[in-house]
Design a protein around this nucleic acid. Structure first.
Length: 120
DNA sequence: ACCCTGACTTGGC
DNA sequence: GGCCAAGCCAGGG
């Protein structure tokens, strides 16, 4: 990847996630311009989170659940979020209605319109 | 270059 | 609502 604009956007977006909020991989990918790039987002976090000091723990899957498989990293993510005031359900899920970060809704709507999925 | 894997998502059963 | 299969994009062997 290196200097792909998509990667740049993803990094920028991740850095802008407010404390105490979460966002899904797909949403990040969509904001960055590639709605299909959810998996790429995970790779970016996996490889760049430390280098760029990205708040990777604020990224969860579309169900509001921690995406990583059970393990130490998962515990860390949960602890990080709880420390920011995010409450978890039993199954490591958060309430997206409360914690989902909606950055510049206009952009998202614009994306939807381009895809012709919204009837305003 | 091919194949497998992954911190994803959506749609069908 | 949970499990399975198929799409999707990139990196690594």
């Amino acid at each position: 990847m290196r200097h792909d604009p998509f990667t740049q956007s993803v990094i920028m977006i991740i850095k802008k996630i407010p404390k105490g909020k979460v966002i899904s991989y797909g949403a990040v990918a969509g904001m960055a311009g590639n709605k299909r790039g959810a998996r790429q987002v995970s790779w970016i976090l996996h490889s760049m989170s430390e280098k760029c000091s990205l708040p990777w723990w604020r990224v969860v899957n579309s169900k509001g659940k921690i995406a990583i498989r059970p393990g130490e990293a998962m515990e860390i993510q949960r602890a990080k979020l709880e420390a920011e005031g995010v409450q978890f359900a039993e199954d490591n899920c958060v309430d997206l209605d409360l914690y989902m970060w909606e950055s510049n809704t206009k952009i998202e709507i614009d994306q939807e319109l381009r895809n012709g999925k919204v009837q305003a």
